[in-house]
């Protein structure tokens, strides 16, 4: 049962992070690659504050605030840079943050990371954590449903097609894009916190490029502005590595194979699937 609950927890964590990414990337068409930074920053901020005796509630608040501020910074840059430059910058931020985590060992524990990150006292069992994650993921899905059916949702869809046409209708396309990026950062932080409550250990490999591969695949595959489509995509991508169980690979390389599988899948997706299986325009 432990493995089953772990898979459900991983799925729910991915739902929370992907909600923000779905709105920013799939719906609004912004190639925002900096969400692993928000994910890691949220988790590290929580862990560091907790380690220094800050209460659980304040630590969570601090973590969410720090990632939201990061989201605002990303949004400010988005307003000034071209789409391609912003994509490159946000990708570079992932590498830069990784370097900071590894070298600032007095704060982050360096490559050894931070262990024994506590869960809230009311989450006495793993099942209780999964139930909480279910509630949070449901709230995020509900939020996405409401946004997609609101004027903001239509503006996000229009933003993907043409910012010029959107501006000509009196909607400030840069504001629309900025909101999407800020929310993506926030959802990354929430995902980071609920993940760290599960694994209770942090090191620089938390988030980063591996997470980018997985979430990019989800965002490209889930390019329709539909909650059910996004939900199904997250489920599929989360369970994709289960196919490795069909082969007698040694357990020591399963983690690397998982990464390889996601990388190959992303390449296939970008090259072949994104233009063929849906009437939507190519995302990449």
């Amino acid at each position: 049962m432990g493995y089953f609950y772990t898979q459900i927890a991983r799925f729910l964590e991915n739902v929370v992070v992907e909600t923000g990414q779905h709105l920013a990337m799939s719906v609004a068409g912004i190639l925002f690659l900096g969400f692993p930074v928000s994910f890691s920053l949220g988790a590290y901020t929580f862990a560091i504050l907790e380690e220094n005796g800050i209460s659980m509630a304040l630590a969570v608040t601090g973590a969410l605030l720090s990632s939201s501020v990061l989201g605002v910074l990303f949004a400010l840059l988005y307003r000034r840079l071209s789409n391609d430059s912003f994509a490159v910058f946000s990708l570079a931020s992932v590498l830069a943050f990784d370097a900071v985590l590894r070298s600032w060992d007095s704060l982050t524990g360096g490559v050894l990371g931070i262990s024994g990150v506590p869960r809230p006292a009311f989450l006495s069992s793993f099942l209780a954590l999964v139930l909480l994650q279910t509630v949070i993921a449901t709230l995020f899905l509900l939020f996405e449903y409401i946004v997609l059916h609101s004027s903001l949702g239509r503006s996000l869809q229009a933003h993907k097609e043409s910012k010029t046409f959107l501006d000509s209708l009196g909607v400030h396309s840069k504001n629309v894009g900025s909101l999407a990026i800020i929310f993506a950062s926030f959802s990354g932080a929430v995902g980071g916190i609920i993940t760290i409550w599960r694994i209770q250990f942090l090191d620089p490999t938390f988030g980063g490029i591996p997470m980018l591969l997985i979430m990019l695949s989800m965002s490209i595959l889930a390019m329709k502005p539909r909650v059910f489509w996004m939900f199904s995509t997250v489920l599929f991508i989360t369970l994709l590595p289960e196919v490795l169980r069909l082969f007698p690979f040694p357990s020591s390389i399963i983690g690397h194979l998982r990464l390889l599988l996601y990388s190959v899948f992303l390449i296939l997706l970008v090259n072949k699937l994104s233009s063929g299986y849906t009437s939507e325009k190519r995302f990449v």
Binding site: E161, S162, T164, F165, D167, S168, L169, G170, S173, S279
Partner: peptide, 24 residues
């Protein structure tokens, strides 16, 4: 005044290649 503000002031336009959102 920026384009989106001009649109709010009442200057609305069409485009040479039909400024319609084709995926909506």
């Amino acid at each position: 005044v920026e384009a989106y503000v001009r649109a709010r002031l009442g200057i609305n336009r069409s485009f040479q290649h039909a400024g319609v959102f084709r995926d909506m």
